[in-house]
Amino acid sequence: MNETQQLITLAVIALGTVLTRALPFLLFPAGRTVPRPIRTLGELLHPAVFGMLVIYCLRNLQPLTPPYALPECISVAVVVIVHLCFRRTLLSVLAGTLCYMLLVQLVFC
């Protein structure tokens, strides 16, 4: 991507994001009923999207060639375990990221 394409991408992202926030105010002035599909997607899409994003983050894993996606698997396990123990988002993110950085910089390098 050149810089123009990058800025277009960022503009499109900004537009899409503000659209989702402004939609209720644009479409439903003064108590008009909200169409069911919009309400449904608004309520149900969020969990599915984060499932999809987890897959997206791990899309380039190659479990069949060395190091067999071990840094990612170990670090995801660390995130899950730390989070189940403490339920503190920042702590879990920090622990997992540190673990991954140490693994790719010192162990699997």
Binding site: Q5, L15, G16, L19, R21, L23, P24, F25, G42, L45
Partner: peptide, 22 residues
């Protein structure tokens, strides 16, 4: 470069904000 994909993603990720707005 894939502005359509970027736009769709932004809509999906922002979908919950529509509920907040409501």
């Amino acid at each position: 470069f894939s502005p359509i994909q970027a736009f769709l993603l932004a809509l999906c990720i922002g979908a919950r904000h529509t509920v907040y707005g409501l």
